[in-house]
Write a protein that binds this DNA or RNA. Structure first.
Lengths: 233, 233
DNA sequence: GTGACTTTGTGCGTTCGTTCACAATGGGGT
DNA sequence: ACCCCATTGTGAACGAACGCACAAAGTCAC
């Protein structure tokens, strides 16, 4: 019935899913590899690449083994070939159209961020609800009013929305982009977004990261765990 | 010898360490709770709080149980009391002094981000290597030259450094802040930072998150896993 | 006071992720 | 042609995290 069942071995192991933890590390490997490539390195061992990516080498090998068998025993991995394979697996060999909603400080920083364009992400729209910002040119793009959100998403074929609005506006904006057909959302607003099945949300929260650091910092200094704690009265 | 061994029960379970996964969620609970508090809610059940935080209720209860037994069976958790307990556990009842190095678009966004001050993070310095930026006032602070990095860190008692420089400068800046006594680093530059034992680094990478979204987006659309893949020649 | 009801806190099985350690395997030297 | 060496790819052991399901424990109505 399903060809996979008759000839499963010829299909990539990844068919049934690369572990999330691995997916999250692939971009790190990719960046390390691109660095090596720029320096003219043609071949790299798992040990070297692991060091460059800040992970241990067994983990690196297992991660890469999920994509297929792309190394040569006794030699290592061919940098250029591996760059291509990881890019393809991540979907970076095609272009992705992105819209950024909310052009405050953060939205501006995102619009100007070089790391997008170089990895196949094309910013097709900057939108804001504030009329005094609409019309400004930022990173070569004119800011549009959020009224046009649906139009832009559909006309430009936006598939990923970046939400950089204030917290209060985020859920509404999210509902609108989802209704307009977006299925992946990167959320910078400090709220938990509710989305229907089938839509992916990833969250980046600046203050959460700081809080996690504070927790560990406190531990180093001898935090509350050192004290005798009273019971809830 | 160690009192913990003679009377372990009286000490918080957390003494030996709250799981990392839990620590990473505490800030989310905290934000949800503060939202409830502002709306005047006094008591909340694990079910409700879990919904607000976007996790399942068993996980929430287990997370909170690591801090101690702060709920009341049949009733739920007292919002204000729980806010205090989580804040204390995260180390937010004390103030943390932060310096931001690199005042580009992102550094500016960070400097103006309200989520810091409201959680006990005081930005004590904005530093940049570019002489044309030095002296500008941003969010009420004058930008200083990176020459003064060591002075500022020591004089102001900075314990957390936020690195928002270009990739090429990040490692050098990191070495300097660590040498000056900083033990926690939040890194926005797209590089893997090397730090000595005892220093914590957390990384926020905008383009990595987008790449992870692209991966899943590709899957939805029927990505490379659907195709028959040739073997490495 | 008592009993019904609600909600917490947690023991347990399961799943997911990491690490070790080594057999398999390709390259290169002789 | 053969053997040695370096390095991959992975089986298996371990550990962390998740989620179910329920006993324990408190509240509230009467």
């Amino acid at each position: 019935m399903n060809p996979r069942q008759t000839n499963a071995k010829a299909f990539k192991d990844s068919a049934k899913g690369i572990p999330e933890a691995t997916v999250a590390r692939l971009p790190v490997y990719l960046r390390a590899l691109q660095g090596l490539k720029e320096r003219g390195v043609e071949t790299v061992s798992s040990e070297e690449l692991a060091a460059a990516a800040g992970v241990n080498s067994a983990k690196l090998r297992k991660d890469l083994s999920h994509l297929g068998s792309y190394g040569t025993r006794g030699v290592g991995y061919e940098v250029e070939y591996l760059v291509y394979q990881i890019s393809r697996e991540l979907g970076l060999t095609q272009d992705w159209v992105v819209a950024i909603i909310g052009v405050g400080n953060l939205g501006r920083a995102l619009a100007g961020y070089g790391g997008f364009a170089s990895r196949g992400f094309r910013v097709a729209g900057l939108l804001d609800a504030d009329a005094s910002i609409v019309g400004q040119r930022i990173a070569g793009l004119a800011v549009e009013h959020t009224d046009k959100l649906e139009t832009i998403i559909k006309d430009q074929g936006v598939s990923i929305a970046v939400i950089a609005t204030p917290a209060a506006a985020a859920q509404t904006v999210c509902d609108r982009v989802v209704a307009a057909g977006v299925t992946s959302v990167l959320n910078f607003a400090p709220v938990v977004l509710n989305v229907p099945e089938g839509v992916d949300v990833r969250k980046v929260d600046l203050s959460i990261e700081l809080q996690i650091l504070a927790f560990h910092e406190q531990r180093k200094a001898g935090g509350p765990h050192e004290e005798y704690i009273e019971v809830h009265p």
